[in-house]
């Protein structure tokens, strides 16, 4: 799997290099004009953020219920770290867009707040891993699992305030001139995610192998 990483990274780099030209060629949106272009980066990163958070939750559940497989643990850790990276892209591009579209940097609407809370949750996953000491694998798996159960509650609780955010149902109705650059970027981000994910799980595997080899040498 790791042999494909350079190829996938190259594809992602080429696609991301081409994407500004495709975004430029897409027609401007009627009401928002130029600002709307950030959508071609914002939405793909938000999608990858969601994918990695689901992966983290599922891998954590498998780790806890299915006999502590080291592989599930590696997947949960890599997914949590990538959720932080892509969540950061989402949380930076979102306010930039919101400032122009709504006139404010931040509103406490359901999507923004739940993205922020979930992003913080993956931070706590990673912090726990980094500073929790021995046995933090189980602990962080608990965080991943509880985090998955948390999503509907955060969304529901914040949704009672009004929601400013455009609904995602707009995506299937996009004209092809806007849809093609969007999906192009989704694929590019997915390639980047896949390559980083493969690399991160590999690094984690090597790290644990080294740790156990060191422990053996000490005995």
């Amino acid at each position: 799997m790791t042999r494909a990483v350079p190829v996938v990274l190259l594809i992602a780099a080429a696609m991301l290099a081409a994407s500004p030209f495709m975004i430029d060629a897409a027609p401007p949106e009627v009401t928002m004009g130029l600002v709307q272009k950030i959508f071609y980066v914002h939405l793909p990163s938000a999608m990858i953020f969601m994918v990695s958070s689901v992966m983290c939750g599922v891998a954590s559940a498998i780790y806890l219920m299915g006999g502590r497989s080291a592989k599930a643990d590696r997947i949960a850790l890599a997914a949590a770290e990538l959720a932080i990276v892509f969540g950061l892209i989402t949380l930076v591009t979102g306010p930039l867009w919101g400032r122009k579209a709504w006139g404010v940097w931040w509103v406490w609407d359901a999507r923004l707040t739940s993205t922020l809370v979930m992003w913080l949750l993956y931070w706590s996953f990673v912090l726990l891993r980094r500073f929790g000491g021995a046995g933090s694998e189980t602990l962080s798996a608990g965080v991943g699992l509880f985090g998955m159960a948390l999503v509907p509650f955060v969304y529901w609780s914040v949704n009672v305030w009004r929601t400013l955010h455009p609904m995602t149902s707009v995506v299937p109705t996009l004209p092809a001139s806007m849809g093609i650059p969007l999906w192009w970027d989704v694929v590019a981000f997915a390639c980047l995610f896949g390559a980083l994910f493969a690399l991160r799980t590999r690094v984690e595997r090597l790290r644990t192998d080294l740790d156990s080899a060191l422990a053996d040498a000490d005995e």
């Binding site: 913080l120 706590s124 726990l128 500073f131 000491g133 933090s136 965080v143 509880f146 985090g147 948390l150």
Partner: peptide
């Protein structure tokens, strides 16, 4: 766990 005093709020508050 190590540094449990600070890790409890870190984990608990988002949830």
């Amino acid at each position: 766990a190590r540094s449990r005093d600070v890790l409890l709020p870190v984990v608990l508050f988002p949830i």
